[in-house]
Design a binder for these strands. Sequence first.
DNA 1: CGTGAAATATGTATCGT
DNA 2: ACGATACATATTTCACG
Lengths: 153, 153
Amino acid sequence: MSELDRIDRHILNILQQDSSISNVVLADQVGLSPPACLRRVNRLREAGIIYAEVALLDPKKVGYQLNVIVEVELERDRPDLYDQFKRKVLAAEEVTQCYQVTGEVDFILVVVVPDMQAYEAFIQRVLYTEANMRKFRSLISLNRPKFETAIML
Amino acid sequence: MSELDRIDRHILNILQQDSSISNVVLADQVGLSPPACLRRVNRLREAGIIYAEVALLDPKKVGYQLNVIVEVELERDRPDLYDQFKRKVLAAEEVTQCYQVTGEVDFILVVVVPDMQAYEAFIQRVLYTEANMRKFRSLISLNRPKFETAIML
DNA sequence: CGTGAAATATGTATCGT
DNA sequence: ACGATACATATTTCACG
């Protein structure tokens, strides 16, 4: 795995906040010529360190007002069924994030939907049909005071 | 609030998956001339519908192996202290996401750190020093099977 | 919204350290 | 191995119809 020097980290910190800046501006900010800077950025992309560049939308402005954090407990004696559940979660568009956790709870899901009706539909389609489900708990959120994708290096 | 037509939604869906494509390619994919397409993208940016364009890093490749979902319960009789807690959370770099939820739990935090030591340091600095804290529960995750930022329209 | 032209940016080749 | 300069190609952006 490639080591990241000070300039690479500087580039990553900037692009994590704003990837729409031109390479010439980026190069200037990190103190390199544009070609030298571009080579580094391309190297970081090829290494998969930068795995995507995306536009972030304001959920409320596109009618997605509701976040639900779901704690899921599966039957413990069937670890092979974990993969089945994972596949279902990956296929469900409403689930934006899934964390496999240790302890009483097995998975945490972050579900983003327009309203309660859409959430009920999700429960019916994905959770109630899961044979392996022991129980789940839904934590409803209308407010997301913080949402950062950046890891500052 | 501005209405989104079919082409705007198409643009948003594409840019949520890859915002690094050139405007000419985007224009071609949605069936517009480049200037017409760029005018729409800029309109979406100015309306705050697109609120950021960012590079996403692979956490493991930059040494951030650990996600912790934290359920926080505060003292109920002091709703004014919610804001104090929110400010602390906004200032804490380890907290990448914060959801205010209804029910027994008051907040869900998503904390991203390199290792347990960094998490312990976070707990000491942010959670144990919170006078308003009733209790919290940490759900440790070494696996994040899904992480999507897109809302498909 | 589209066309065409001017201004910028990106990407390549080559050289120097 | 890495960065800088200069040049060629491509894209962004403006004015106008």
